[in-house]
Amino acid sequence: MSVSHDTGASGAQRLGGFIASYSVVITFLAICLFFAVASPTFLTGANLYNVLVNNVVMLAIVALGLTIVISSGGIDLSVGVSVDMASMVFVMLLAAGYGGVFGVTVGLLAAVAVGVLNAILITRLKISPFLATLGVLFIGQSTQQLATSGGQPIYLITGYAGDQFNAIARTALLGVPTPVLVLIACIVVVYLLLHRSVFGRAVQAMGAQPGVAWYSGLAVPRQQSLVYIGCALLCGITGILLSATVKSYVPLSGNAFLLDAIGATFIGTTLSAERRPTVVGTLLGVLLLAVVKNGLLLIGWNFYWQQVGIGVLVFLVLAVSFGLRRARQ
């Protein structure tokens, strides 16, 4: 342990520390600046709206769920299954003529069921979170394939269901689109839960020092269950928003969120000195990924190069943050 104290630190050292902590923020601003100069359409209201609604909202809600799980020292590989289950049940119920509110409720319950399954596997059967959620991921994929005769999408573009979808995805309150309002609500709730509540302190303790949390008498299994169920519920909300936006259910589409959400959460951990996930950090990670994807598209990079670009960028942000912090020690 040789963390230099501020009093003895030279200017260069302090600058290094600053860059290590805020490399995500600096990169984010630099990238926004770059795209604003490189592409005339980047800073237009229409484009930013598009980025927010199509690239940020859903990923951010899933990433918030993962932030809770990763804070507790676990991991949830089955976020895609929760997304898909909510989407599948919701769309199937609408297709069968049930009401929108009923469909949303049962859809969210389907996602919660995935969370409950994870919780049972992890707290009762004592399976490590990685393996438990990996198993649930496999089972969830099979379930969807069996329920849709091998992965046939369900499209409900017009008619009754189309109206229900529009009521969710195409409405706005005071000019703010409903999905964005949902995201804001999720942010507030998760922030209060994780950073301002007893539950949040228990979660942080479990993540930072599992042994100490156990010996201090925390009800670790109960808190863990809440963590995985909460994450699944958030993923369910994304599933509902997803199917309402694309007006369909496409099997196995939720998996696309997994790696981006893990990436965003861990990019966010570079903000904190102890490498802990935070709500603010995660949101920054999501914004960074979303802006890069959009910006590379605008300046004409094709999908293949985008993937390389995002990989390199994430790598560099991590390298700067982790590398500088290591150099200081």
Binding site: G263, Q307, V308, I310, G311, L318
Partner: peptide, 29 residues
């Protein structure tokens, strides 16, 4: 990334996964 820079393996290999997958797509279209 893991040894030199001290990045978590889960995270480092995730970024490298994106790079490798993107490089494959670029090479083979």
């Amino acid at each position: 990334a893991v040894v030199g820079l001290g990045i978590l393996p889960l995270l480092a290999s995730l970024a490298v996964m994106n790079i490798a997958a993107g490089a494959e797509l670029t090479l083979t279209q």
